[in-house]
Amino acid sequence: MTDYKMRPVEGTIHFDGAQSTKGFNFNKMCFSFNNEEARQAFLADPEAYMEKYRLSEEFKQALRDKDLNRLLELGGSIYYMAKLAGIFGWNMQVIGGMQSGRTTEEFQAYLDSQGRGKTTNG
């Protein structure tokens, strides 16, 4: 049998078929947030909106808690969770901090610590 199992990587959940199956309804809800009316409908009544997409209680609670790592565990995809950013006013540094246990400032400092200035021949 072909060995297609992915090696685990610490601090990372590979978004694969199993995760995508578990997270389908949640990711589908987040996909709907491409639409402004959908974002407004969620903000007006998040519980009704989550129910409309038949989220499990675990998903609902993780979203109430804004627990991004829990949402990833349950099957959320970061590409769809990024669409929550428009609703909650987050940017990717805020999201990065929330997931890695840092304040936004600490997360930016972590990025900067690995950075490298311009290298160019242009």
């Binding site: 990587v9 610490e10 601090g11 990372t12 959940i13 978004f15 790592n69 990833l72 970061i78 969770m81 990024a82 990717m92 999201i95 990065g96 997931q99 890695s100 246990g101 840092r102 997360f107 972590y110 990025l111 690995q114 950075g115 490298r116």
Partner: peptide, 13 residues
């Protein structure tokens, strides 16, 4: 870049 999870923010110049 890594956007997701506890490892978010890793870079490797």
């Amino acid at each position: 870049h890594q956007l997701d999870g506890p490892r978010a923010g890793i870079l490797n110049a």
